[in-house]
């Protein structure tokens, strides 16, 4: 498939996401050691490595197939809460994507993916989770597309919003997930799920650059 948002683009996104997760594995695990169970980096690295294998073994022929296959693999192979959450995100994103994918269609599908994560985890923005990076990214993406930005600009704005959202989790008290057991002690640390979400959205911008 040709065009910016074709199958190859989504394959590139998954490859870049795997690379950045590998590169930041120890940082993610360190963040998780502070307020979780110190396995986030290793879990996601294993998951995205398996995604790469699955996409090589069964080459997808559409953007939806790339994303649904990646999501299913993450659900099955991560082994922590981030597996079902990221898996649901990518599966819903893939299922919601119209063919051929347009920037506006992608923004809507991305928002639908974020909604799936919110529903599964019963989390909202401010709970110190992945949602704190993903929800601002979805809003930035939608706004950029409405303003007529091209993919590259729109994904850059989403990446920036996700990064700011992740950093904004530092002063928050966790209300969901393993960190919520820590109560006040979760304050002062960046949420590892929000940090990895920011990396994954950054790799989306990188794939379009």
């Amino acid at each position: 498939m040709s065009g910016m948002l074709g199958t190859d683009f989504f394959l590139a996104w998954m490859t870049l996401a795997a690379g950045t997760v590998r590169l930041h594995r120890d940082r993610l695990t360190g963040l998780d050691a502070a307020i979780g169970d110190a396995d986030h980096g290793a879990n996601l690295d294993r998951g995205f490595t398996e995604v790469g294998k699955a996409l090589t073994e069964w080459p997808p022929t559409s953007p939806a197939q790339v994303l649904v296959s990646a999501g299913t693999t993450l659900i099955r192979r991560v082994g922590g809460a981030s597996g079902p959450l990221y898996g649901s995100f990518f599966r819903q994103l893939g299922k919601s994507l119209d063919v051929p994918a347009t920037p506006a269609g992608f923004a809507a599908a991305f928002a639908s993916g974020v909604l799936a994560v919110e529903r599964l985890g019963k989390a909202a923005q401010g709970d110190k989770t992945m949602i704190d990076a993903l929800a601002p990214a979805a809003r930035a993406l939608t706004q950029a597309v409405q303003e007529g930005a091209d993919e590259r600009k729109a994904f850059e704005r989403a990446a920036r919003a996700a990064e700011e959202g992740a950093k904004a989790t530092i002063p928050l008290r966790a209300r969901k997930g393993r960190a919520s057991y820590l109560g006040e002690r979760s304050i002062g640390h960046e949420d590892p799920g929000a940090a990895s979400s920011a990396l994954i959205v950054a790799s989306l911008a990188e794939a379009a650059a």
Binding site: I75, G80, A81, G83, P84, L120, G121, G177, R178
Partner: peptide, 10 residues
Amino acid sequence: LGSAVLTARL
């Protein structure tokens, strides 16, 4: 708890 709940829900 946690990911057991999320995985089971799926």
